[in-house]
């Protein structure tokens, strides 16, 4: 599937959390809350990250794979408690830490799509994440 394709529903593995709709922030890069974020300012802070400098707060964050350490398991909820978290996390491949963090924080999480989700969705697209169905629907392309 390509961004130009007509298919607007992407199928993944059933995820964690409730259905949400919001604006996508997308990059084919990996993710760790500790390694990549300035969690106080709500921005990507690792200079090498493709989203360096971008504000992720209240966005549906769409990235390739979970990387880095274990801290995200606590940090996702800590960020959300200050209203400084993403609205949902969508990955090609989650790891246990992201699943544990999402379960603890009640943060919607989806992964294991049939195709590369980061190339099917673009930054600024409006998407709906339905973890129970394991689907990401592109509502409106930017």
């Amino acid at each position: 599937m390509t961004r130009q394709g007509k298919e607007n529903i992407l199928k993944g593995h059933p995820g964690i959390g409730h259905t949400v709709r919001g604006e996508a922030l997308v990059a084919h890069d990996n993710f760790s809350a500790r390694y990549d974020l300035d969690r106080l300012k709500g921005r990507f802070s690792r200079p090498q990250h493709k989203l360096h400098g971008e504000n992720y707060v209240d966005k549906i964050l769409i990235l390739n794979a979970a990387k880095g350490g274990v801290a995200s398991a606590w940090m996702l909820k800590e960020m959300m408690s200050r209203d400084m978290g993403p609205k949902a996390l969508v990955l090609n491949f989650a790891n246990p830490i992201m699943a544990q963090g999402a379960a603890y924080a009640d943060l919607p999480l989806l992964d294991r799509f049939e195709h590369d989700v980061t190339s099917a969705v673009g930054t600024g697209d409006i998407v709906e994440v339905n973890p129970a169905a394991g689907t990401l629907t592109i509502i409106e392309r930017k």
Binding site: V70, N95, P96, I97, Q100, Y104
Partner: peptide, 8 residues
């Protein structure tokens, strides 16, 4: 073991 982050 898997990576068992804090809550888990």
């Amino acid at each position: 073991t898997n990576f068992q982050g804090g809550p888990s």
